[in-house]
Structure formats: C-alpha cells, structure tokens
Computed example of a mutant assay.
Amino acid sequence: MYAPIPALNLLKEFEDSVDDYFAPGFELIAFGEDDGGYPPLSDRIRPFAQANGSGSTYAIWLRDDRADLATLPVLLLGDEGGVHVVARDLPELLRVLASGWSPMCDWDSLDYYDEREEDDGWDPCPENPAFRTWLRDRFGLEAAEDPNAVVRAAGQELREPFAAWIGPLIPDAVGGDGSAGER
C-alpha cells in the first residue's frame, strides 16, 4: 500500500502502469515521509507528489481530524517559496491535473501555466489521454474545463481558515491584510 488514501493507491497503480508523464511535472513521491521543505508545517501536512519539474510539492493539509484524507484540501508547497491552497480535496486536484494545469508560485502569488494556451494541438503529456480515461472510469470525473477557476475558487473558499492556521507558523505565507497570498 502506497498511502492511507484509497484514491492515491489507485493513482499509484495507474502511474506504475504508464511509461511517461500523465500530467505536467507530476510524480508521486513517498507519502508523508518529508516536510515538503516546510518544517514548521510537518505535523499538519502529508506531501505526496512532485507538482512540477522544479521541485514544488503537493501535500494533503490535515485541516481537521476527518478519517477520509481524500476529502481534505490540497496545498502547493513552492520550491521558490510560497504555500497555497490549490484544491478543496483530492478528486478536485485530479480534475485540475487532467486538464494539463501546471503550477508556479512564490510567497505572493500562484501563477498558472496552462499548456493548452501554447498550442491548439494541445498534447500536454503522452499519457494524458489514458489518465483522463482512468479518471472517468475510476471516479466518474472529467478534466476541469477551467483549471485556473477551480484553483482560484478553492483558495478563496479556504482563505480564512488557511490564513488562521499558517499565519502563526509562516508569517510570509499570509498577506499584509491577513489573507493568504493573492491568486
């Protein structure tokens, strides 16, 4: 078993069955075995994947004590700084990943690199069509039509509890107005 989250175990099986990337820069890493570069957060996060080719990481935010970890928010831990909410839960992140969305962030912002904007013949990763089929077959989910809107909505919805939690631990992660960094 890869993780205490059935959806991540299924994703690990899928990842092991393909020969190439299925989402830009995304790769599963050892579940919860490090702090994602943010030691003050280590007791409330469980890193699980490389988010992009530059070293940013996705982590489950243990916001509360619910048993189903897949229903907890997902954070992006930036390799150049910055911690941001990117999904309300794991299924939402999978929809964003299937769209070809790739994150870049710093302390003040979360930028969205959407490969679909680069080329009308969009082919983000060789295994993306297989991932989209897998997502539909396993979970009945489709790729997000507007991944940026999904990410922005998650950040807005969780802004206050996120700022209240992270502010005392990493003050740079919270804007001067007490809100989480702008998205």
Rank of each mutant, 00 (worst) to 15 (best):
D123S: 13
D89S: 14
L76D: 03
Y58F: 15
P171W: 14
G181R: 11
D111Q: 14
D114Y: 10
D64V: 00
E127G: 11
G175R: 08
P24S: 15
C105R: 06
N9A: 12
A154M: 00
E80T: 12
V74Q: 03
G100D: 06
V86Y: 01
D34A: 06
E157Y: 06
F48K: 02
I29H: 08
F162I: 07
A144H: 11
P40Q: 10
R63A: 13
A130G: 08
I29K: 09
A164D: 15
G175M: 13
W107N: 13
R132P: 00
Y58N: 03
Q156M: 14
P161S: 11
Y2E: 10
W61K: 02
A180F: 09
P40Y: 05
E145N: 04
A7S: 04
R44I: 12
P147A: 11
S102D: 12
C125H: 00
A143V: 01
P47C: 04
S56W: 01
S42Q: 11
P73Y: 01
S42K: 09
I166L: 07
G32Q: 04
P6K: 08
L75N: 04
D16Y: 09
S179E: 09
I170E: 04
V151G: 01
A98W: 02
E182K: 15
R116S: 14
T133V: 01
S102A: 15
F31W: 15
R63S: 13
G175T: 10
P147M: 12
A144K: 08
L75R: 04
L69P: 09
G175C: 12
G178W: 12
V86D: 02
P47G: 04
P168H: 10
